[in-house]
Each structure stands twice: as C-alpha cells, then as structure tokens.
Design a protein around this nucleic acid. Structure first.
Lengths: 162, 162
DNA sequence: AGGTTTTAGTTGACTGATCAGCAATTGACT
DNA sequence: AGTCAATTGCTGATCAGTCAACTAAAACCT
C-alpha cells in the first residue's frame, strides 16, 4: 500500500516533528482562529468585519483627527489598493467619510461618520467580550503581561528590517 | 474643518484607546506580519505558499501514513472546499498524491510525493531560519516557553467551545 | 524655473479563500 | 431490509485581498 521508504523520509519526518515547527504553527493557528471567531461574531452582531473594526479603532482614537489612507494602510499592513477597496465598502456602508486633504492634493483623509462611531461602540463591546474570554481569561495576569511584551519584541524585529 | 463634537465621541475614544484593544491588535498584527514574511520568502525560494508548507508538515510527520482531506481541513482550519482547491494546486504542482480510501469510499487519502518531500526539506530549512530570526531570537528562552504555553491555553479555550 | 524622482490613491486582472448547495456513501434506528 | 440522518469531497458564485500599471501631485536637485 505504501511506497518503499525513501532515504529522505526520515529527515523530512524529523523536520516535520521539530519543536519549533509545532510552536510556530501554534502561534499562527491561535491567531487565525481568534481572528476568525471575532470576525464571525462581529459580522453577525454588528454587520462589520474585523478589518473594518480595526479601521474604526484607529479613526476613533483622537476625535476630530483625520487620517490619510496611506497611514491606515501602513498601520493595517494592507496594500494601498486593498485599502482603497476596504474604504470603498466602508463608505458605501456609511461608516466613514473621505475628504481630499487641503494641504496635499494627493492624499485623501478619512473620518468616521456619526453612524461609524455608533457602530464602533457596539462593535467594541462585542470585541471586548470576546477578547476577554479568549485572550485574557485563559492566562494569568503575569502571563498576559509577558505575552504582550514578547509580541511587542517580535513585532519590533519584523518592523526593523522592513 | 471638523464637525462639532458629539457626545459619543468621548466614549468611542476611550474604547479605541483601551489597553486590551491595543494588545489584541498587536497579537493579530504580529502573527499576520510573521506569516506574510514567511509566505513571501517561501514563494520566492521554494515556489510554495506557507499554507502548502503546513500541509507538507502534516503529511511528512509519519512516513507511510496517509491522511484524509477532512483531517487536513480540520487541522488547518480550512473549509472542505478550500482544502479541495488547495490540494488541487498541490497535486498539479506534483507535491502530493491523492488515492481513494479503500475503507471508506467517501474519503480520499493524501500522501506527499517524493518531490513533495524534497521540496518540503528545502522549505523547512527556510522556515527554520525565519522562525529562528523572528520568533526565537527576539525572546529569552524563558519568554519563549511561557509564550508557547500561553498560546496553547488560548488555543484550547478556542477549541473547547467549538 | 525645469526635469527627474517619489508618493498617494485608483483600477484591471488575478488569487485563494468562503459559503451554500450537491451527489455519493455510510451509519443509525426501527 | 429500509428509511432517514450525517459525513466526505466537489463545484459555482462571491468576497477580500494582492500585484502591477497608471495618473496626478509634490519633492528634490542642480
């Protein structure tokens, strides 16, 4: 039923079973699952995606401040094209408003609409509930602190060599 | 230039600036960046995506063992349809081989081809190099241990209430 | 000032996933 | 045995992103 064992099989098995491979897989998988869970719940209860929530978070931080698409794109790790389309959908849904920058006619500034802020408030509550349940509750306070610190260092390492 | 401040603005700003929101954003962002980096490098140097590598990892663990698509889908957090198409591409690329299960005529079993194992070995080296650089190096040994343990608990919490 | 280079955002073509619906097969219950 | 439910994998339609090519505007550089 199986082919005759090849010399490479053993080496491949060793690599596939390595500790690092499993641990790294766990990081990616946990983050993916977590995001899927939150995305699904947000769509169902608030009608927005997790990505849209991330946009609203950034737009609501400093009321009155307008943020350029470029800035959003960098912060969300999206391409400029992807950001254009994301904001198209959000504008269509009445969540944000685009205005050309008076200072630089290349840039367009983005602001949440009143409705955008309102939806954000509801979404933030859902978000908080789920983050609490799956991110905070499973960890001790100490673990939580160390985890976020560790993630910060990883993120820094990734940013450093662009 | 800015609209008159609304009563909800302040509440929204508070939510948007919360500690939990930032920390959770960091988790998702770090994982996303990490995966993008690795995916890009794998495509360039080995011609496979990160998802394909994850498939090969699972197929190479126990040489001679064949794994059902269903099992793969669950393990990768993909839908069955997505898995079908992923394996279509991998079969097309000569990385895996599908055989109908003799025991249950609904299931099809998947095995790596010799070429699949060979590509996997090269990809695993690239993978190890990057994981080492961005996941291990930025952390102390102690942090690393705690981080993976914490992720394990998060993953468990997510699995528990399916 | 004037030409070159860089930057911001949009768009068309494509990719890799999802979802929902399907056929085939198997299991479970009388 | 015979029906009804559950499971496996596949498919068409769609979605949300990428990439590369483009335009318009600004910055830079002698």
């Amino acid at each position: 039923m199986n082919a005759t064992p090849q010399p490479g099989d053993e080496a491949a098995a060793r690599a596939a079973n390595s500790r690092l491979v499993r641990d790294f897989g766990l990081l990616i998988k946990s983050a993916t699952r977590l995001e899927q869970r939150i995305d699904g719940e947000l769509r169902q209860e608030c009608g927005i995606s997790h990505t849209m929530l991330e946009v609203l978070i950034r737009l609501c931080r400093r009321p009155g401040e307008e943020i350029s698409q470029r800035h959003l794109a960098d912060d969300l790790t999206l391409t400029s094209g992807g950001t254009t389309r994301l904001l198209d959908r959000m504008e269509e849904a009445g969540l944000v408003h685009r205005t050309p920058s008076p200072a630089d006619r290349r840039v367009t500034l983005v602001e949440p609409t009143p409705r955008g802020r309102e939806v954000f408030l509801r979404a933030a509550a859902v978000h908080a509930r789920l983050v609490e349940k799956y991110f905070v509750a499973p960890l001790t306070a100490d673990d939580y602190r160390r985890l976020t610190a560790a993630l910060g260092r990883i993120d820094l390492a990734l940013r450093d060599d662009a």
